[in-house]
Design a protein around this nucleic acid. Structure first.
Lengths: 134, 134
DNA sequence: GCTTGACCTTCCAGTGGCGGGAAGGTTTAC
DNA sequence: GTAAACCTTCCCGCCACTGGAAGGTCAAGC
């Protein structure tokens, strides 16, 4: 099949598939007589694997490691599990940070009248926070 | 004061301050005889405002709007409040997404032995998810 | 045979928000 | 006198793509 069909089946865009080939994340696709890339179901499975791994938060370097594990029949499942748990912790840190940011926003919004007047707790907060001790 | 002192007081890096000037987020700094940028406390306050706004999740375009509100004595605090609440909703969406991703990771990890064997629920999941119906 | 449109190819540029580092000028301290 | 710590501008790199230009290919309809 051509690249757009492989894209449809894998969940990646054709652009992304070419990009992954470009950075040697995947092996160069076979080519037809016309120079078009050709994909079989095995290739699509790898692409789909990558799409899934990206969806759950792995970056391309980590995807590389996961692909190596996928291809390695001598692998230890411990390695995959470690990658997943580490990624989970990273996500937790990002979540914690976003939650903290959001609570600051909600707090500011709650103290702002939000009317037609110029007085604004939000702008005061952003301007002055951390300067009271001086 | 010179740029590194302004950086220290505002919480931004000198690189970032120059960048903000470059993209016209802030007015060009005054220059001393030697060509060095000079900052007064008013300029530092604006930089600090920007640092705070960035910390709570606003992008530079939104920071531009917030700065306009800060400078506008005729502003309506409603505008600032709307920006904050919209940003809060955006953060909520990002949080929801990350939480969903993390729960997938935790689920996969829980079903993986994580031992020295090659059998691995994680890799199976990533490879096969969404294909059972076929 | 001709056109139209949907494919495909490569290559280059841009995104956001900076950070790193080169190459060179200035100031300060010893 | 010199070393270091500043400062300047400029350009490249990061991540993971996306958009678009310029051009080749293919299938369908007339």
């Amino acid at each position: 099949m051509n690249i757009s069909e492989a894209a449809r089946r894998s969940g990646l865009s054709a652009k992304t598939i070419r990009y992954y080939e470009d950075i040697d994340l995947i092996a160069p696709a076979a080519r037809g007589e016309n120079g078009y890339r050709q994909y079989d179901s095995g290739a699509v499975e790898e692409l789909h694997f990558l799409a899934r791994a990206r969806e759950v938060g792995f970056d391309l370097q980590e995807c590389r490691q996961l692909l190596n594990l996928l291809r390695d029949t001598q692998r230890h499942s411990r390695h995959a599990r470690e990658l997943v748990l580490e990624k989970s912790q990273q996500l937790q840190q990002r979540i914690d940070k976003l939650v903290a940011m959001q609570s600051v926003l909600e707090d500011m919004a709650s103290r702002c009248h939000g009317d037609e007047g110029p007085e604004c707790a939000i702008l005061e907060d952003l301007a002055g926070a951390g300067e009271e001790t001086q």
